[in-house]
């Protein structure tokens, strides 16, 4: 069990990491050239993994929010918005801001997984999530096919685009990310809660018996 002091210390460290990352993203010029390859690798690893670690701890720390539906939806909305920016649906001409949203999309993708774990830890909604995720896929595909034409063709053509951009199929990335989180975690959550209920029912001693 963690001591309260340790928790506070870790939380401060996580916020500090977030702050340093923001400083790095906004203060270092986006077109900065790296002469040293090792430095480039270190910076890239740092800018990807430090916000992931910080966000993971902060989400665990503030889990009372992330166990609610608004808390679960927050990283999804963040991912959708940041993907729209990084895929060029919402044009941004400030390169540092563009870089910020690219990093945010990576962190949001990870955060969706953490938020789903927290939600499913506290709420027995695994089966429901999987079911409604299937409905979401079908309807999104249907509307996309109706308004954006042949999806199969669109996805194959996306292979040709530079930078791997999926525009106009920008929604495909967030959707895949959400489904990839929901389906395995939903199944694990459902089975886990079932085992918990069975243990509580048959292995908990009832003093009145």
């Amino acid at each position: 069990m963690k001591r309260p002091g340790c928790t506070r210390w870790l939380t401060r460290l996580a916020w500090a990491l977030v702050f340093i990352d923001l400083l790095y993203i906004f203060l270092v010029p986006a077109d900065q050239s790296f002469d040293n390859v090792a430095l480039l690798v270190v910076c890239t690893v740092w800018i990807i993994f430090s916000p992931i670690l910080a966000s993971t701890w902060l989400m665990i720390r503030y889990r009372s929010f992330f166990r609610t539906w608004p808390g679960w939806i927050t990283p999804i909305v963040t991912l959708i918005f940041s993907m729209m920016v990084s895929q060029g649906v919402i044009p941004i001409h400030q390169p540092n801001l563009g870089f910020f949203f690219t990093v945010l999309s990576i962190v949001s993708g990870w955060a969706i997984g953490i938020a789903t774990i927290i939600l499913l830890w506290y709420r027995d909604v695994g089966l429901g999530l999987i079911g409604w995720a299937a409905v979401l896929i079908v309807w999104v595909m249907m509307f996309a096919w109706r308004f954006q034409g042949n999806l199969m063709e669109g996805l194959i053509l996306a292979l040709e685009r530079p930078n791997g951009e999926l525009v106009p199929l920008w929604w495909f990335g967030p959707l895949t990310c959400v489904i990839q989180c929901i389906v395995p975690l939903g199944i694990i959550g459902f089975l886990g809660h079932t085992v918990r209920l069975i243990i509580r029912e048959w292995c908990t001693h009832n003093p009145s018996e």
Binding site: G131, A134, V135, V138, W139, M141, M142, W145, R146, L151
Partner: peptide, 14 residues
């Protein structure tokens, strides 16, 4: 009902 309606329309279009 929601899923099958969506699937029906998707089949119709796709």
């Amino acid at each position: 009902a929601t899923f099958l309606c969506g699937l029906g329309f998707l089949l119709l279009i796709a």
